[in-house]
Structure formats: C-alpha cells, structure tokens
Amino acid sequence: MGELNNFLSWLKVDVITEEILIFILFVPIIATLVNVSRYIIGFRTFGIYAPMILSFSYIFTGIRYGLLVTVAVIVSTLLSHTLLKNIRMHYMSRITINYTITVFMVLIILALNEISPWSITTEQHTISAIPPLGIILIITLSDFFIKQYIKKDLLTTIRSLVETVIIACIGWLLLTINELQNFLINNIWILIPLLILNFLIGQYKSLSIKELFRFKKDLSDNGENE
C-alpha cells in the first residue's frame, strides 16, 4: 500500500496535476454510470462519450449555465435542421452548416439570457471564468442529437437526450463531491472492484427496469403458464 501511495504522490507532483488525476479517475466512474443505466435501467444515452463529456463540461460551466447552453444547442439544432431539410447538399456540408447556424443561435440565446430579467447565471464567479472548451464540448452534442434525429423520430431522440443529460447531471453531481474526490485519489484500488462490477453488469441477462414497465401489463394480466 505504501508503494502505491508513493507512486500516487509522485504522479500528482511530477507527472500530472491533482485536478487532472481526479478527472481521469472519474472517467471510469462515469462510464460505469452509463453502463449501469444502459443495462440495468434501460436508458439509451447517446453512447458513452456524450454523457461523459457533458458531465465534465458542466463542471466547467456550472450546472445551471451548462443546462442553459444544452437547451440552447438543442433548440438551435432543431431549427437549423428544419431550415436545411429540403435543401440539396452533401452530408458533411449539411453538418457543417448545421454547426454554423447552431453556434450563431446559441450566441443569440446566451445574449438574450444576459439581458433578460430571469437571466440564468453561472455558479462560477464570472462568465469569463468558464473555459471555452466547456461550451464547445456542449455544442458537439448537436452532432449526436442530429445523427439520431435523422434516423429516428423526434420523441425517441429527445428521450435519448433527456437520458443522456440525466446521466451527465448525476456524473456532474459525483464530480462535485469533494469527499468522493479525496477518496478516489487516496484509494485508487477502487478501480478494481469497479472493474468487477462492470464485468458483472456485462453478464446481466434479466429485464431492465424500463422493460419491467414496458411489459408490466403482460406480467399482471396474463403470463403464459406451462
């Protein structure tokens, strides 16, 4: 144990900063969260990357402001998609134009937020304290959203979005708990039980919670007896 601690202190001091170490350790934690939500709860998030990135972004932007940017991105994406729907062009061009319009719209929405009396502010000290990457990462959500929206209907896509944001919020919440952060950097062995947990989820075969609700009618009405 002593050697592991020495190794950790060396990591924190000479290799990376403590902040980076915390963030890196949270990557498998949030991934596990997505894993549990997919197979045990039955959530269909936009993959594993989107909820993870959103969790970290919300740390940079503050949760309220982060959610505002998220809503702004989705509304803008929907608008730009509707505008572009019937215009003939290459796929990548469409996505690029979509990004351009989205960015423009997000700026407008954020400006409107600033001047409105119900303005949502960031928990960070000032807007200038938000690293640009925080907002850029949320904007990339547009891509995940549009890719699914083209294939599936709006409600299914919004459902995935809501589930992604829920997981991101839980991830953000975990990230903000100082005790958890301290525990993690001092107990890096926690990754091993995490590994086992994920392995067990990998073997899970029963119904997910959402499926239980989906088939509830059948279960209560009439299951077939042999």
Partner: peptide
C-alpha cells in the same frame, strides 16, 4: 414453471443468449 416476469425475453438476454 417459470415466474411470470421471467417468461419475458428482454434485450439483455436476447443479445447474450
């Protein structure tokens, strides 16, 4: 005899088994 809810095939089992 199978428990009623166990009769339902869910996505997890469909994929694995």
């Amino acid at each position: 005899k199978m428990n009623k809810y166990k009769q339902i095939l869910g996505i997890n089992r469909r994929n694995q088994e």
